[in-house]
């Protein structure tokens, strides 16, 4: 599973929209919620491959921060989850550490890690979904491969969200051991981009809020957000993700995502 997902998967986890059915008989809230999710997913697909620079800043309740910077390479897969290669550049003591992830929609991800200090590759296997992702306020399931069947959807209402108008839907995880009872998801009417997500813990108390900002259009097709802020209301900690230098269609192939590539990555 991967860091890589950040660029996408959060989005991937997030949205999908109805397009064509606005003319049909007015759908039920559940149907409309599902349609929004599907459309959001469709609009995130079809990019082929891309790479970007990703900076994660972890802040504690006293404002102390830690920064991690990495490069992420992504290869889109049609029948399964995407492949990601993450190479750490900062902090200095983990520079060159690389992680390869084959994400899967139906089974656990495959993951390999290269530690330059030992010059060895190890396969890592973890089934944990609700745990913290790299010590951040994001959890693994926030980044896991999107699969429509993993949630139940319910469209609730339209309402303004900042300068935009948004659909507001409720998503309820249907897979085992989720850390959430539900999520409230806002995405804009015009482009079905995620704008905000409220996460409710297993006691149905507001746990976290994700705000997504700074959308940019790449290749006149792909909307990508540059700025993600996840705030944990219970611990008062937050994590910021900054994306930069997005490049689509750079010609990445499967050879760039094998175990040998892990060692080559610097």
């Amino acid at each position: 599973m991967g860091i890589l997902r950040m660029g996408f998967t959060v989005i991937a986890v997030i949205f999908f929209v109805t397009v064509g059915d606005s003319r049909a008989q007015s759908p039920s809230p559940e149907e409309k919620g599902l349609e929004i999710a599907k459309e959001a997913d469709r609009r995130l697909s079809g990019f082929g491959d891309c790479q970007e620079i990703f900076t994660m800043t972890l802040r504690d309740d006293r404002g102390r921060s830690r920064v991690r910077r990495m490069r992420i390479l992504t290869l889109e897969r049609e029948d399964d989850g995407d492949w990601f290669l993450s190479i750490f550049d900062e902090p200095a003591d983990v520079k060159g550490t690389a992680m390869l992830t084959y994400s899967h929609t139906h089974t656990d991800d495959d993951q390999w890690l290269y530690l330059p200090a030992l010059k060895r590759v190890k396969r890592i296997s973890s089934k944990k979904k609700s745990g913290s992702f790299m010590g951040s306020e994001f959890s693994f399931e926030d980044f896991s491969s999107m699969e429509i069947e993993k949630y139940k959807y319910k469209y609730l209402r339209n309402e303004p969200c900042g300068d935009l108008d948004c659909f507001v839907s409720e998503w309820i995880p249907t897979y085992a051991y989720s850390g959430y009872t539900r999520m409230m998801v806002w995405h804009d009417l015009a482009e079905y981009r995620i704008q905000r997500v409220d996460y409710y813990d297993r006691k149905n108390k507001l746990l976290k809020t994700l705000l997504v900002k700074g959308y940019q259009l790449f290749d006149e097709k792909y909307w990508r957000a540059m700025h993600w802020i996840m705030e944990n209301h219970q611990t008062k900690r937050s994590t910021t993700l900054e994306y930069s230098e997005y490049r689509f269609g750079v010609g990445l192939t499967e050879r760039d995502f094998d175990q040998a590539a892990l060692k080559r990555a610097k």
Binding site: L58, D93, V94, L115, K128, M134, G135
Partner: peptide, 25 residues
């Protein structure tokens, strides 16, 4: 370096026990 990389691996794997013994930075 190896200590840092082990700790990164631990975090990537979703390990949480360390939170009780190490502060956030």
């Amino acid at each position: 370096e190896l200590i840092a990389q082990y700790l990164l691996m631990y975090e990537i794997s979703g390990g949480k026990e360390l939170e009780d013994y190490v502060n956030s930075d």
